[in-house]
Nucleic acid binder design. Structure first.
Length: 269
DNA sequence: CCCTGAACCTGACCGC
DNA sequence: TGCGGTCAGGTTCAGG
């Protein structure tokens, strides 16, 4: 999926097309996603989109009454197309707007979600215990060092724990650790404060640059205009079985927390 | 509380 | 060409 940069790229691409627009109709072709789409979603015609926000990997669509919470799962994408254009395979949801544009949600693996929420979406059970935004002020050295102190698990697992910090998935965890010179399997509590500071900077820089490139496309992800993300060309270790761009050592792959992890055995300690 | 592994689902790819 | 096995960007949930 879609990690934070892909979700933010999606949000930015869609926002200008739907803000202040009136929903004409909602088409549900498949309601069995991670959780079933509630019947209320089909009845949103007439409501207006007030703003499009994001919390971690969730896209928050605030309506003049109620909210939609979207998640892209592993294979989800959202794009704008003219209303009436043919539906692609696995295009489960379509929202038609007064301006003749359609927001299309596509998700082959259906690990994503679309939830209707009457109240504050930040209080929803799926969102209320999320950690800080990695690009916000609350994610700093003091915070992450404190989170690491008592944890014996690998630092990569800590980075990918959404209760610790949101938005860092399997690609960017490997990339940020490479950038910080820290091995993904290193026990979190065995990392010095100075190196945690490097890691905080690395996470921010990696995610920020990925957003600037429109995210990373491996298979499914497309931006709101249908183009892929271009950060794939900037990846240093993820999916790379070749040599380190810095020292030439072969990149190694290990398994951590059910996920493939990549690192340079010489540059990362 | 912390940590691990199973589960959800489809499609791409690889070796035979 | 077909078949079976493996792997894939996420996250909840059950259980130790």
């Amino acid at each position: 999926m879609p990690e934070l940069p892909e979700v933010e790229t999606t949000r930015r691409g869609i926002e200008p097309h739907i803000t202040d627009q009136r929903i004409e109709d909602v088409i549900l072709r498949q309601t069995r996603l991670r959780w079933p789409i509630s019947d209320e979603v089909a009845t949103l015609g007439g409501r207006r989109v007030v703003e499009l926000g994001r919390r971690g990997k969730y896209i928050l669509m605030r309506l003049d009454r109620g909210h939609l919470i979207w998640h892209l799962g592993m294979s989800g994408s959202m794009r704008m197309q003219p209303a009436g254009s043919p539906a692609a395979a696995h295009e489960h949801v379509e929202i038609l707007f007064g301006n003749g544009q359609a927001l299309k949600y596509r998700d082959p693996r259906r690990f994503g979600a679309l939830l209707y929420c009457a109240e504050d979406p930040l209080s929803h059970r799926l969102l209320r215990s999320l950690g800080p935004e990695p690009l916000g002020d609350d994610f700093d050295t003091d915070y992450l060092y404190h989170q690491c102190r008592q944890r014996s698990t690998a630092i990569k697992n800590v980075l990918m724990n959404s209760q610790v910090v949101v938005g860092v998935g399997n690609i960017y965890a490997s990339e940020a650790l490479y950038r910080a010179g820290i091995r993904p399997a290193r026990a979190a509590r065995r990392i010095s404060r100075a190196r945690v500071a490097l890691l905080v900077d690395a996470v921010r820089a990696t995610l920020g640059e990925a957003i600037d490139h429109g995210g990373t496309t491996l298979q499914d992800f497309v931006q709101a205009d249908g183009k892929p993300g271009y950060f794939r060309h900037e990846l240093q270790v993820y999916g790379n079985r070749e040599n380190c761009n810095s020292c030439g050592s072969p990149i190694r792959q290990i398994q951590l927390g059910q996920r493939a992890s990549y690192y340079c055995p010489r540059c990362q300690t």
